[in-house]
């Protein structure tokens, strides 16, 4: 006899543990059973993952700013006064 599917609410609540691979086998199968039956949660999971990817890409791809001379001077001055 199979257990009822977890709800979308439960799916959403513990989604991070699924993404981080922190679930045990039984719970992971429950998640996958839900995913197989719920296209909206498939879409949610995918966009959740991509949200993280976008934030990461933002940090990794930032152009490196130049170092203003004033900043160098200020650091050296405060070192002398420290």
């Amino acid at each position: 006899m199979s257990r009822p599917l977890m709800s979308c609410r439960e799916f959403s609540e513990f989604l991070d543990r699924y993404v981080e691979g922190e679930l045990g086998d039984v719970e992971r199968l429950e998640f996958e059973r839900h995913l197989a039956a719920c296209p909206a949660c498939v879409a949610y999971l995918e966009s959740y993952r991509r949200t993280t990817r976008l934030a990461r890409a933002l940090g990794a791809s930032d152009a490196l700013p130049g170092v203003p001379d004033e900043l160098v001077a200020a650091v050296l001055a405060s070192r002398r006064n420290a």
């Binding site: 709800s7 979308c8 609410r9 439960e10 959403s12 909206a40 949660c41 879409a43 949610y44 995918e46 966009s47 991509r50 990817r53 976008l54 890409a57």
Partner: peptide, 21 residues
């Protein structure tokens, strides 16, 4: 995200466009 009493999402998610990244 918000949910109905039965646990279903009130605004079911829609896929994102391929080229977001």
């Amino acid at each position: 995200p918000t949910f109905h009493e039965d646990g279903h999402a009130t605004n079911p998610a829609v896929a994102w466009r391929e080229d977001a990244e």
